[in-house]
Nucleic acid binder design. Structure first.
Length: 446
RNA sequence: GGAGGAAUGGUAGAGCGGUUGAAUACACCGGUCUUGAAAACCGGCAUACCGAAAGGUAUCGGGGGUUCGAAUCCCUCUUCCUCCGCCA
């Protein structure tokens, strides 16, 4: 089992065929604007100059070897054709002379091919280590302390009683059973019960309805994906340990609907500006989240399985900034309608995801825990994912160009659930926000 | 899980190991004709990479092999279809 998986990965990485180049950051960018890339990547708090210089060096060697190889092949091909004609016209002796001549090329061809392949593999491997380039407005900084608060909406609720954390409320009203989850599966896999389950379902319905309203097409995708899809959106090889793996069949449980949704367009050339592609899906999300502990994981704060409604967009490069703004508006609307106090952060370079060019996080205030909880992350990946996916469109000149991809949570359920329980609690129950009324038969949990 | 069959360009569908990157048809794009459209006729129409260009290289599901030469032969993997079994 394990062996077959290793083989697959090895095959994928090492046998990338000579001309089927799947690259991450486009190699052309390294050729054309190397110094600028190195400079811009510094914002991530890491120096990528040695990797990039190494890639650049290998790339030059690769090109010169490749040119040599190809001219040799051209010569062989030409002679082979002539041999065919010689045989046809019965000039067997001449044909045999030519055959011997071609044979002398063989060794050099083999040698060059080996070198070209090896250089190519090496370049691919190195490219996987280079993250996306942060946009200009991404703030400098190393940790979440350096994230920039760009907006804060609403105000902290005032209670004339001691606000309870959601795990106490969940127990009191019998909404979520964490211990039962531990028994049946393990920590981080809670059961939602009764009104807790219904509230969860209402939220999903609400989010999907809002997404539809905003023009997103709803999908119900597979909840497991293959290895290629993992590479396509960049979960592999970078975050391999984060995903649950089904060894028997070489599948990964999805950590987000982004993976199946975006991979719909893997190896696709979108015809004549059929933009925008707007997709939404509700899915459970599975994350191993190795290394988490303490108060961060208490209650619903961090789970191995959680529900999320995701929105994904595929855009013309000139339209992706606008699309990002629309997505931010969409998420703002959701939180406002639910009556939650929230803020928006622009992530700093050091906190930015590997594949993202810019990310905004939405955080809701947890009244009882007195802290901010991340409920949404909205990102523009520009061409980074599209390059891995080979997701392109045809421009007006008929040339293929990479699309931009974006996605965002709209929204992740557990912390929204937590925030609703905590912020809408009263002395005698929990008030259901108005937009959810039509999905529920009760207005208050008591 | 067992037994068979198949995989070629946007689609359909040819292709004795040697001018096949690939016939043909449809679709699509441009043009002629037409008041306009249709029809007819003419032309164009895969992708990627290297190259300033000329041009070259690679690709007929993936990988490997035989050969001077492979869409065509061999091995292997994957996927799909048909039949049987199992099953929500």
């Amino acid at each position: 089992m394990f062996k077959s998986r290793l083989n697959f990965i090895l095959e994928y990485l090492l046998n990338l065929p000579l001309l089927k180049v799947t690259i991450m950051l486009e190699i052309t960018r390294i050729r054309n604007e190397k110094d600028r890339l190195i400079e811009d990547l510094k914002k991530r708090g890491q120096d990528f100059s040695s990797v990039i210089n190494q890639i650049s060096e290998f790339d030059e060697q690769w090109r010169s070897k490749k040119t040599e190889l190809e001219s040799l092949l051209a010569e062989s091909n030409k002679i082979s054709k002539e041999i065919g004609e010689l045989f046809k016209s019965g000039k067997i002796d001449e044909a045999n002379v030519a055959k011997n001549k071609v044979a002398t090329f063989k060794a050099r061809e083999q040698e060059l091919k080996g070198e070209v392949d090896q250089l190519n593999d090496e370049i691919q491997r190195l490219l996987y280590d280079v993250p996306n380039v942060p946009q200009d407005i991404v703030p400098e900084g190393m940790t979440d302390q350096d994230n920039e608060v760009v907006e804060e909406i609403g105000s902290k609720p005032n209670f004339d009683f001691e606000a309870k954390p959601h795990w106490d409320l969940a127990a009191e009203y019998d909404l979520i059973d964490f211990e039962l989850g531990v028994k049946v599966t393990g920590a981080g896999f809670p059961f939602y019960k009764g009104k807790g389950a219904k509230l969860q379902r209402a939220l999903i319905n609400f989010f999907l309805a809002e997404a539809e309203q905003a023009g997103y097409t709803e999908y119900i995708p597979p909840f497991v994906v293959n290895e290629k899809s993992g590479y396509g959106t960049g979960q592999l090889p970078d975050k391999e340990g984060q995903m649950y793996y089904v060894g028997e069949d070489d599948f990964y449980l999805i950590p987000t609907a982004e993976v199946p949704l975006t991979n719909i367009y893997r190896d696709v050339i979108i015809p004549e500006n059929e933009f925008s592609k707007k997709m939404t899906a509700y899915t459970p999300c599975f994350r191993r989240e190795a290394g988490s502990y303490g108060k961060d994981v208490r209650g619903l704060n961090r789970l191995h399985q959680f529900d999320k409604v995701e929105v994904v967009r595929i855009e013309h490069p000139s339209k992706s900034e606008e699309a990002l703004e629309e997505m931010l508006d969409h998420v703002r609307g959701l939180l406002t309608k639910l009556g939650l106090h929230y803020r928006i952060l622009r992530l700093c370079g050091g906190d930015l995801g590997f594949t993202s060019a810019i990310t905004y996080d939405f955080e809701v205030y947890s009244a009882a825990q007195e802290r901010w909880l991340e409920v949404s992350s909205v990102s523009n990946f520009e061409t980074y994912q599209a390059n891995r996916l080979k997701l392109r469109f045809r421009d007006e000149n008929g040339k293929t160009q990479l699309c931009h991809t974006l996605n965002g949570s709209a929204l992740a359920l557990p912390r929204i659930m937590a925030a609703i329980l905590e912020n809408h609690q009263t002395n005698d129950g929990i008030l259901i926000p108005e937009p959810l009324h039509k999905y529920l038969t009760f207005r208050k949990i008591r």
